[in-house]
Computed example of a mutant assay.
Amino acid sequence: MELALVIGVIVVALVFDYTNGFHDAANAIATSVSTRALTPRAALFMAAAMNFLGAHLGTEVAQTVGSGIIDPPDGTHGLVIVGSGLVGAITWNIITWYFGLPSSSSHALIGGLVGAALAASAVVHWDGVVAKVVIPMILSPVVGFSLGAAIMIAIYWIFRRSQPGKIGRGFRHAQTVSAAAMALGHGLQDAQKTMGVIFLALVVGGYVDAGDPIPQWVIFAAAAAISLGTYAGGWRIMRTLGRRIIALDSPQGFAAETAAASVLYGAAMGFGAPISTTHTITSAIMGVGATKRLSAVRWGVAGNIVMAWVLTIPAAALVAGVCYLGMHLVLE
């Protein structure tokens, strides 16, 4: 029974990873596609490949998710908690994807795990939630907005005497690099979250010890799932990020992607913090747009996105809690 549950949780985790890929594909490539720096199909292929590579760059975020958020009991009960958390995250991902809202798959996962743990009266590491989730959740959009604005101002100043047409062509080439960096950061951040959940299921099931390194097959499976999901595309959200917040040109797209990628690498490598790629790129786009003029940003759309951000953790937690209660009655 426990082996079947472990396998089931791993499968559900990989499904979440796949939905994360198609939900967040737009994060890395929407600006490049909207400025015509890359064709949609080429951008998706590049993002999928860079996601796969990024997933192999570290395990700091995976360790945070696997051991720093909740502490479920061993055995069937703990596996039900982890599985319910994943179902809550997947449900919120699908809802926000359907409506084209770039909400955070990362925070949906954290909310799902916490909601299932609370419903089960399991241990929640609130200090870890605050330090590794809540504080980065607040700071990363602020840093993304500020850094995006700063890079855009620097570009305006450095190229103030250059011909706009020549600059546009140059930055379309530069965007290929910045989009690849963003996709690499997405793999570094988001694939690791699924690795952490799979590792948590293996610990709860008794197949590995909490202090063991993450198995290579877990890293490969998570990397492959998010890459396949990314290649499947995220057209609804791509339209929101690429055009509905602000109509971007190539220098603006380059500035937003460079700022967001920098924040992703810093959070993962420096702090092991599972921050949201969605929050980061969206806030960077807003920061870049605000340097042109505040009215250039469609703040109504931005407000709808922020509302989705606020609702993500409690909504995913609620779905996961209800799911746990149902699975608990059936399986235990």
Rank of each mutant, 00 (worst) to 15 (best):
I81Y: 01
G83N: 11
A108N: 09
H107S: 11
P73V: 09
G115V: 03
P72E: 06
G78V: 07
V114T: 10
V80D: 02
G88I: 08
S105F: 02
H77E: 15
N93V: 00
D74K: 15
F99E: 02
S104D: 00
I110S: 08
P72C: 11
S104Y: 04
S84F: 12
V80T: 14
P73S: 13
S103Y: 00
G111M: 09
L79G: 06
T91N: 05
I95A: 13
G78D: 08
L101C: 08
H77A: 14
A89V: 03
W92M: 07
P102E: 05
G115L: 07
W92F: 09
P102Y: 04
A89R: 04
H107Q: 15
S106G: 07
H77C: 07
I94D: 04
G111F: 07
N93Q: 03
V80S: 04
G78F: 04
T96V: 08
G78N: 09
F99K: 14
T96L: 03
A116H: 04
V87H: 04
S103C: 13
W92E: 04
H77I: 12
H107K: 12
G75N: 01
L101P: 03
W97P: 02
F99D: 03
L101M: 14
T96R: 02
T91C: 13
T96M: 05
A108Q: 06
V114R: 10
I95T: 00
G78M: 10
G88C: 09
S103P: 13
D74F: 14
F99Q: 11
P102Q: 03
G100V: 12
T96A: 08
P102N: 02
V114K: 05
A116W: 04
L109M: 15
G85A: 08
I95V: 15
N93W: 00
V80A: 04
A89D: 01
S103M: 11
N93E: 03
I90H: 03
I95N: 00
G85T: 07
G83T: 02
G85N: 10
L113M: 14
T91Y: 05
H107V: 09
V114G: 07
G75T: 03
L79C: 07
I110C: 12
